[in-house]
């Protein structure tokens, strides 16, 4: 593991955490509406996966701010989307759950659990069809592995032999239902192991996530077949801002927080000489500044003009006639 990777991990994980904590504040102030799903505690999975994956199409669930930031989408445009402003990545029409940018091969932000899994399979099919062997990444939560979308998608990916990495973020709760109350077994990688190679890893360790996803990427691209990873992680916050989260004990939360992925990275990085106190301090200050600027930008951005209501439903320049 190189120093520069460790530094990138730290920068992006910290950026994600500060961004989301700030988004939470803005939500409380009423500047962000609707649902806001925070990924605090899960940053190692999001950042490790995006960096380990590298080039290719990414399809994510609705808890996707950190994925988007790790992918390179600018914090100010992401924050502006949360604020519903015209300068947002989706012109304020998608919101927190629907960040899209084909420039970064980033295809949502999907708010129907598991619905993006067949999209990833189709995209991988299309890439393969055009002679492009690049893999596709689809990430989803533990709850999605109980859905028809999941079983249909792994079945099709394995039958068609397309290079998709299925990354399951097992944070143990589908809103308030613990994983073992909705599935006959809690080791979710077992659901895929007859279809494709499937592993379970520590999702609180960014190095492990990075290495596993990197290896999976090499596998799917060399073999042209899918791969399954279950990353065990934890969300510190409730499911969304409208959830109380009282189905989890303070003790359970403390155990999870003791394994905090950012603290974990800091400790390991310093021990191994991959990070320095100076760098950590530099990043801590820098991300505060970036996030403050993002909030300023979002606050000062204009609302979408009313005529935007009718734009983007259909193509603006449609073909007229055919013969």
């Amino acid at each position: 593991m190189s120093k520069s990777y460790a530094e990138q991990f730290y920068y992006l994980m910290k950026l994600g955490r500060v961004f989301e904590l700030r988004a939470k504040e803005e939500y409380m102030k009423g500047n962000i509406g609707g649902f806001l799903h925070l990924a605090i505690g899960e940053e190692a999975v999001h950042v490790g996966a995006v960096l380990g994956f590298g080039k290719g199409d990414i399809f994510v669930h609705y808890r996707e701010h950190v994925y988007a930031l790790a992918r390179g989408m600018e914090p100010k445009y992401v924050m502006a989307e949360l604020f519903g402003k015209i300068t947002g990545v989706s012109k304020g029409k998608g919101g927190s759950m629907h960040l899209y940018d084909p420039k970064f091969n980033f295809y949502g932000g999907n708010a129907i659990v598991g619905a993006h899994l067949p999209h990833a399979v189709g995209a991988a099919y299309a890439r393969k069809y055009t002679g492009d062997t690049t893999g596709v990444l689809a990430s989803f939560g533990d709850g999605a592995t109980n859905s028809g979308n999941f079983f249909e998608a792994i079945n099709m990916a394995a039958t068609w032999q397309v290079p998709v990495i299925f990354l399951c973020e097992n944070n143990y709760y589908a809103i308030g239902t613990r994983v073992d109350r909705a599935s006959p077994f809690a080791d979710l990688y077992k659901k895929a192991k007859d279809y494709m190679p499937a592993v379970q890893i520590d999702g609180m360790d960014v190095f492990e996530v990075f290495e596993t996803v990197k290896k999976a990427k090499e596998y799917v691209e060399t073999e042209g077949k899918p791969y399954f990873i279950e990353a065990l992680t934890y969300r510190y916050e409730p499911h969304s801002m409208s959830d109380t989260g009282d189905y989890r004990s303070p003790r359970e939360l403390k155990i999870a927080k003791d394994k905090d992925p950012i603290e974990n990275l800091k400790k390991k990085g310093l021990e191994k000489g991959l990070l320095t106190q100076e760098y950590i301090k530099f990043v801590d200050d820098k991300v505060q500044q970036i996030v403050e600027e993002a909030v300023e930008f979002a606050l000062n951005s204009p609302e979408p003009p009313l005529e935007e209501l009718y734009n983007d439903v259909f193509c603006e320049v449609c073909i007229d006639v055919i013969s």
Binding site: D57, F59, Y107, A115, L117, P118, H119, A120, V121, G122, A123, A124, Y125, A126, Y129, N149, E152, A153, M156
Partner: peptide, 8 residues
């Protein structure tokens, strides 16, 4: 769903 992905 896969048709949507193919279009993407």
């Amino acid at each position: 769903g896969t048709a949507i992905g193919m279009a993407i």
